[in-house]
Design a protein around this nucleic acid. Structure first.
Lengths: 216, 216
DNA sequence: GGATTTCTTGACTGATCGGACAGGAATGGT
DNA sequence: ACCATTCCTGTCCGATCAGTCAAGAAATCC
């Protein structure tokens, strides 16, 4: 229990969580039934109740896994020691990669927000806000140092989140408009560069003083 | 029936649709129950079935009303005869105003997209795509005329939609981070100017040749 | 003012939901 | 070999769901 070599438990739990991420992303909390969640996990329905108690317990477990994964990029890239050209571009690229690799996670979070976040309100008001309060001064500092235009740092974050996550949340729309069954490497590269350009130029980021550069 | 002075019908239908927009926006399609929809409309449950047949019929009616309202701004602002500084800024401002005035409509649409648009797929692939195919050349034309940087016009639209609609769809998140119960005029003004700046500067829009200007 | 259509309503139904539970199977420690 | 714990699963249950229905009330038409 403490020592926890609960291999069977670990495997089953992971199996259920992975399946639940897909099902909840596709059907939402109310639309997902325990029967479907169980079928997706390849386990009897009662097993899900055995490991997670209730449907909401399972949902929260999925969300918590996502949220833990959710707040890494910003803190890693938006730091005072970086030039904004590096920090903002790196952050946008990381989030875009994230949108491509795990779109379902993003969609579950989006669905929760759409409904007013009834199950993660505490997180929004506390944890997320605390994180933003750490990021905003960094961006303001860049502006004050003359490395970029003065811009409202929090609204800039909202805009970055919106642009990057739209490629995960609303990808049906994007695929429909582009007339593609799935977005390929090129599509994502173009999208990423568009967002990076909008952010860097939009914030009037001056170019950094000639460090190492990758080929275009 | 044809001549249609069906006043009672008209009133009831509008009443139900208005209530349904709120309920569907808050709870989603699966989460909204006919009982709750009826309660919000102040009518017995059976009345909703009398006028709309099924729950999905009501939902589609709500969505269609939204979609009709949805595609006006772009065609009005993104036109070849405008300078991009005027067209893009005007479009962004219009969409931001929209996000503030009718956030619930935006949320229903967003919820539908999140789930893969099972009920409006035809619209995405046909109507929306057709509209975008009309808008993209206008933007490309602006770039070709040297009025702004060359940028992928469709991805630019995706980004504009994302940024403007995030203030409707995810306003819980925004309110939580800003620590506000509701966004006031100032908040929305700052948000709007942030988005306008990101778009105009981000696209490298040259300033138009000295027309009338408002004070800053 | 009687007939006819439109509208309203509470009561009902079959299906499905989340969840409970008890007992059987497998596992692991000794 | 034994036992205790963990894990698995078919079956059941009360609640709630979308949708039905028949009969009453209101409005409309001739």
């Amino acid at each position: 229990m403490d020592t926890g070599i609960a291999t069977i438990r670990q495997v089953s739990v992971d199996q259920i969580l992975a399946a639940a991420e897909k099902v909840f992303a596709q059907h939402g909390f109310e639309g997902a039934t325990m029967a479907r969640l169980a079928a997706a996990a390849g386990l009897p329905k009662a097993n899900l109740h055995y490991y997670f108690g209730t449907k909401e317990g399972l949902y929260r477990a999925v969300l918590e896994g996502i949220l833990a994964l959710w707040l890494e990029d910003a803190a890693a890239w938006i730091t005072p020691d970086r030039h904004p050209a590096e920090g903002l571009a790196g952050y946008v690229r990381a989030k875009m990669a994230h949108s491509r690799a795990r779109p379902q996670a993003s969609r579950i979070f989006a669905g929760e927000l759409l409904r007013g976040a009834p199950r993660v309100m505490h997180y929004l008001g506390l944890e997320l806000r605390r994180r933003v309060d750490e990021l905003a001064p960094v961006i303001s500092g860049w502006s004050a140092a003359g490395l970029m235009d003065p811009i409202h740092p929090v609204h800039l974050l909202f805009c970055i989140w919106a642009m990057t996550q739209t490629y995960a949340d609303f990808d049906v729309q994007i695929r429909a408009v582009l007339g593609k069954v799935a977005l390929d490497d090129t599509d994502f590269a173009v999208a990423t560069e568009t967002v990076v350009t909008l952010v860097l130029q939009g914030c009037g980021v001056r170019m950094p003083p000639a460090k190492r550069r990758r080929s275009a």
